[in-house]
Design a protein around this nucleic acid. Structure first.
Lengths: 207, 207
DNA sequence: AACTGTGAAATTATTCACAGCT
DNA sequence: AGCTGTGAATAATTTCACAGTT
């Protein structure tokens, strides 16, 4: 069986995992119970899980500990990843101190900025380097993942340097859609677009 | 013609708008040109735009200035919205100084935290209030929109208070999915889940 | 009896392809 | 001639409903 996995199934898997974390004190959980905890349908829960394997026991449900381990392994959050951060403005600094990164196995090992006032400072134990050193540092440390938290203006150039340095995945917070080759995983978190979505829903429901 | 608008069309509209901002020096732009700038297909551009109206001129394309105004009006980014911010930790502080809010017509008019070390401080001209004052302040100022940037633990309680105070839309950054009535617009920005998506793509492409 | 896993149906979203307008 | 707007076709995703397993 060669399933094509819907893109949207992956974040749902994360949400099932959260629900499992909250489900202490029993061994098994049914798709029905998982659906109540996550506000998806029970059929969707079952379908989603079968995209990745067969984890259930008919008549009993899903073994909670086993399913947790399976999801962690599918998502890859049991691995550790070194990350380079480019841009230590307000957002970059907030990201540096965000404890969720560590919890998910992401460790920021170097940080860069082009602002002379920031270069040389140490934040959360990481010394901020000049962006001109980006390529050399990323290559030397064999970093595979980068977070781009620069302004829109600098972002594409930074992305190009990162890709040239061997980075395989980019989490982009700059409000542009950088151009990357198909071999590079790009994930955009675009606050500006989320705000426009919010404005749209507000306008629709109040007008 | 009574279109149901696909959810995903709204952020695409935002991206078309960005492309239009970059298209200076001419009066008309074709769906083909817009598709090149946004990496969607020309058919998708045309289909998306017709969900919201008829903006094109056959033979010429879309009048750039007219389409820009139309999109701004559809998205509601021509309106101004007062916003309450709950949680002024690292992320909340970064959001407070994020200039994109103002640009999109969102103005933070009050900020709250339950940490005594933060209450009373002034950030970006906003005095941080105790979360116990949340309900009274939101009601007094008739705030319709709130940003929740608290920890997971406090978030649901904050959301309940906000809804009880008349808030109609919530932009939630806390890593939980708060429960809200259908009348309230909820938009989750869940960094933790994005990181797991990233881990998944990395695992898949490297394993 | 309780529950999963999954074909089949239904729904939703995208792409094709072209009639018709400028 | 050049391009939009849109029915129809296709593709993707979700939901239904139930055969089969524990």
């Amino acid at each position: 069986m060669l399933n094509k996995i819907p893109q949207a199934a992956v974040p749902r898997l994360s949400l099932y995992y959260r629900a499992l974390l909250e489900s202490r004190g029993k061994d098994y959980i049914s798709s029905e119970e998982l659906s109540k905890l996550t506000n998806f349908t029970a059929a969707q829960v079952r379908r989603d899980l079968t995209y990745f394997g067969q984890f259930g026991t008919p008549g009993k449900g899903y073994a909670i500990e086993g399913l947790k381990k399976a999801i962690v392994s599918i998502l890859g959050t049991d691995k550790n990843w070194d990350v380079a951060l480019v841009g230590v403005g307000n957002l970059g600094t907030a990201l540096l101190s965000y404890r969720g990164f560590e919890q998910q196995g992401f460790r920021v090992v170097c940080a860069f900025d082009s602002d002379l006032r920031k270069i040389g400072k140490t934040l959360e134990g990481i010394k901020v380097q000049d962006t001109t050193e980006l390529e050399a540092a990323v290559k030397a440390k064999n970093v595979q993942i980068a977070i781009v938290a620069t302004s829109a203006e600098g972002a594409q150039k930074v992305v190009d340097i990162l890709i040239g340095s061997g980075v395989k995945a980019i989490l982009n917070f700059a409000p542009i859609r950088p151009h990357v080759p198909p071999s590079v995983n790009l994930l955009n978190i675009d606050l500006s677009i989320e705000l426009e979505r919010l404005a749209y829903f507000l306008t629709k429901s109040s007008g």
